[in-house]
């Protein structure tokens, strides 16, 4: 019998592809997750497009047209939904239902389980962000040029990874899965507002505070990558990564697979 612990890379890659495939299946079949993480931002950008498509560029929207601004912040919102909210809710529900424990009973390494989830969330984010950008272009927002793509990809991947880590961190702290959606929304909703997702914030004091929280730096990075000079906003990305790291530390220390830990 082969008892060596060395794992060929291609076996791990096959396993990862397998895992992502089934995460995708579970996700798209679950009407609740598909609706909230996917349909919701798409509906919002369509409504905003209908409302604001003829608002011209001005200082209120940081020198951008209203819809240019909203394409970026709603793209940010959709990444938050696909990564942070989805993971926090799905993982606490799966734990409560014993599904995480069941996965733990198989030889699938836990690192592989999480890498699979991360890749799945990034893929969902990419799909929703593309849709949002596409809908924006229908309302006259110019599509990003070639030079902008590297910054966009880096921003999206780092943002998605950080919000995934935060989602897993929050799932590690939530004890009761019924409370998960409420806890997640309770934190997120006000934070979205003060971070300028729905309205640009003109207060310097508020902007100073929210610059240290995770949502505004992500919005700013997206605005920079999509709508401005395509430079990477390293300072903002740094803040985001710090939050991601904090989430990862909580997750590593506190994550539980068992619904009734001993």
């Amino acid at each position: 019998m082969n008892t060596t612990t060395h794992r060929p890379l291609h076996r791990d890659l096959t396993l990862l592809r397998h895992q992502i495939r089934y995460e995708q299946l579970s996700f798209w079949r679950n009407p609740q997750s598909a609706f909230f993480t996917f349909v919701f931002p798409v509906v919002i950008i369509t409504i905003f497009g209908a409302l604001f498509h003829d608002v011209p560029a001005g200082p209120y929207f940081q020198g951008l047209s209203a819809l240019q601004y909203y394409v970026c912040t709603i793209a940010g919102l959709s990444v938050l939904g696909s990564c942070y909210s989805q993971l926090a809710i799905v993982l606490s529900t799966r734990r409560q239902d014993g599904i995480l424990k069941r996965v733990r009973a198989t030889p699938l390494p836990s690192s592989m389980y999480f890498i699979g989830l991360l890749a799945h969330c990034i893929m969902v984010s990419v799909v929703t962000v593309s849709l949002i950008v596409g809908i924006g272009s229908l309302f006259g927002v110019p599509l990003p040029g070639h030079a902008q793509w590297p910054a966009i990809v880096v921003t999206l991947v780092l943002g998605a990874a950080s919000f995934c880590a935060l989602g897993v961190g929050v799932a590690s702290l939530i004890r009761n899965a019924e409370a998960a959606p409420a806890v997640v929304q309770f934190v997120l909703f006000p934070l979205l507002f003060v971070s300028g997702t729905y309205l640009p914030i003109q207060s310097d004091l508020l902007n100073g505070i929210t610059s240290a929280l995770p949502v505004k730096p992500f919005n700013e990075s997206l605005l920079g990558a999509f709508a401005r000079d395509a430079d990477l906003a390293w300072q903002n990305l740094g803040v985001l990564l710090l939050w991601g790291a904090a989430g990862a530390v909580v997750a590593i220390r506190r994550f539980r697979w068992d619904p009734r830990p001993s």
């Binding site: 579970s26 679950n30 014993g98 030889p107 390494p109």
Partner: peptide, 21 residues
């Protein structure tokens, strides 16, 4: 742990199966 889980199979007391597959 991984080697152990390769060789054992188990059914827990509480049913746990992913609902949408």
């Amino acid at each position: 742990g991984r080697e152990l889980r390769e060789r054992i199979g188990l059914v827990l007391q509480d049913i746990a199966v992913e609902p949408y597959l």
